[in-house]
Design a protein around this nucleic acid. Sequence first.
DNA 1: GATGAATGAGCGTTCATTCAT
DNA 2: AATGAATGAACGCTCATTCAT
Lengths: 214, 214, 214, 214
Amino acid sequence: MQKKIPEEKLQALRNTGISEFASKGLDGANINVIARKAGVSVGTIYNYFGTKENFFTACLEQAMKDLETALMEASAGDVPLLTRADRLIRAVQAYSRENIEVIRLYNEITSSSGNKMAGSLARKIESISSSAYKKTIREAARKGEIRSDVNVEYLAFFFDNLLTTLQFSYACPYYKERLKIYCGEEGLKDDDLMRKNLLAFMDAAFDPKGRTKK
Amino acid sequence: MQKKIPEEKLQALRNTGISEFASKGLDGANINVIARKAGVSVGTIYNYFGTKENFFTACLEQAMKDLETALMEASAGDVPLLTRADRLIRAVQAYSRENIEVIRLYNEITSSSGNKMAGSLARKIESISSSAYKKTIREAARKGEIRSDVNVEYLAFFFDNLLTTLQFSYACPYYKERLKIYCGEEGLKDDDLMRKNLLAFMDAAFDPKGRTKK
Amino acid sequence: MQKKIPEEKLQALRNTGISEFASKGLDGANINVIARKAGVSVGTIYNYFGTKENFFTACLEQAMKDLETALMEASAGDVPLLTRADRLIRAVQAYSRENIEVIRLYNEITSSSGNKMAGSLARKIESISSSAYKKTIREAARKGEIRSDVNVEYLAFFFDNLLTTLQFSYACPYYKERLKIYCGEEGLKDDDLMRKNLLAFMDAAFDPKGRTKK
Amino acid sequence: MQKKIPEEKLQALRNTGISEFASKGLDGANINVIARKAGVSVGTIYNYFGTKENFFTACLEQAMKDLETALMEASAGDVPLLTRADRLIRAVQAYSRENIEVIRLYNEITSSSGNKMAGSLARKIESISSSAYKKTIREAARKGEIRSDVNVEYLAFFFDNLLTTLQFSYACPYYKERLKIYCGEEGLKDDDLMRKNLLAFMDAAFDPKGRTKK
DNA sequence: GATGAATGAGCGTTCATTCAT
DNA sequence: AATGAATGAACGCTCATTCAT
């Protein structure tokens, strides 16, 4: 007897939220404005999400779901590590271009110093991609595609660090500028060049016959 | 000769600002509170800095100056690339432990999406370290310490990305949690292990005889 | 014959209302919460009562009905004034203990300054008990149980004042504290002592041979 | 070096508060409106009082101070109990006419069921008048002006009850209507009649030779 | 008739900024 | 130059009320 799932409505609401939170930040965004932009009343947002913070988290999770899916797909299949890395970088590049706001939102929480949620959000968001990356690296290690003198966990960590920074570099103002400082406008525009370089970097770093391997 | 004691007063003021901005964020921090904690009037802050945002920037720059000095020192001298990398990582580790607030402040601007200053701040802050890193890599390249198939600029970029993420991982709540997810408590505590792994990773990535170099 | 089960439903509804209004006050109580607690929809409350204020009044009247009945019973019968007073005090004491919420609700309107209904409610509620008290006193006067130098109406008024304050003193936080200040915890707990003292007080006040009667 | 005491400003502010709280109640009154009426900004009220509740308490205390003074004066001096009672009733009547709002404010807290402050407010407000009344009665008892079979504390309590109800009856809508129901318009207007009757009632009640005295 | 999702005016509170002293 | 009281726009959140189903 309950009303039909207003799931699509919620989706739309969250999408408006993503957009606002991504551009203004958690503090900067205004719930009343979000409501107006979403074509609903403030009350509705509060009926659904209870608090601004809750609503923010809900937006974030919706945003992250897509990103995760994209990354999961890219890291699926039984392919050589390099191929997988190539796919991942491509996915990151494509996604960052098309979903600037999601990346910005992600970047947003990444720096919520004054925020109690930082810890729990990290656990919620990072655990998924981290386990995927770890698995990927571990399998590659089993196949002998990877040097054995570096800890699998740390490799996955560095790997993620490089991908994450790349994402931010395509979507977030500060990182964007930083990328330009390092690589010029080209760094921002020439995706192939970036990918080629990053792949080479990673490949060498993983190389079982690499220098530090004695 | 009129300005009696301004500079040291300003320093103290900025330090209070750094502390507050680092823990509460730009939005979360309260100018009136900062003034009280610093033992001056709000009016004074406004006389000196004009706006909250300006004051924030001033705090940031003061904070960054120290960090830069630390990194510059670590990357000075005519030593092999690996040695330099080792020093840099040590510097990052030491600095992150002792100056959590500075790192957090840095992390703070890194994600100020809704902020006009992002761009100019990036230019002001990053250009220094980037030119140092580029120079370092370039020299290493000249000495044949580095693979030639990867662009120097991009190498420096990846290099910085790894160091920056490491900093954040030691100082910022979200990144801290993320590091734990990847490497466990150990990753946060065992600096030697982290350094060893990161060094190996970087070393291989730079290796002139690395895999992708055919 | 259409109205199937309305009255008992209404009763339940009002009882929930009494409970909420008694503990939160007219302003503090939340219609949506009341509806949830009563297991009906807000719409139902509005269908039945039109406005929050109306609903409050309805609750109040339901509550008052019980109280009135209790007091009426206590003041019935052809007994000496003192006996009647004794019964009334007992009734007030018993009722206040068992129906804290009703008393609080009564106390609530008693101080609704900003409220148009104050006047009409007073007329609705007080006229009943007042006429009973007046009749009681008048009969007592006819039997010579009462001094003739004090106006019957005023006597009834003072009489009611003492009973009403007593009620509040047993049920309402402020009055409770006040009673403790005057008579200590004992005043709150020793009903017999209170009754004995109040009876003596009243008895003397009514005494046809009292001091001011010259 | 501090600014001159803004005490008169605070007084004015509190007086505006008294007026609004008296007519609208704690919940009903609007801080923004009070600020406007007082000719200050909301911020100022919050600078001085911190919260609405605090401000309310401050208003209440200011209001109560006057009332207390009036009652203290009336109960001062070494005069027979009846004279004192006469003065007190006169004081109550005069004060209630001239300070309706204060009485209403007092009445307001008297019924704050949903309110944590009820207890502490009672202690703050009532302890003063109660100790004065107790002392009065105790002295009268020492002089043999008072019956010995009724507890001094309880006598003081009943005494206060009668005076308090009288106050409310002159100032608060509900009580006003109630008074009219008992005594007609006359009860509201003829202060002498009311005083005469109440005095007679009290006098008899206190009479050492009263009926219940065996 | 009953429902409960939606509404949006309204309120308490905060805080960057100003300016008279 | 320094102060800090005053300001008031702005915001998160509540809840009485409505109305489509």
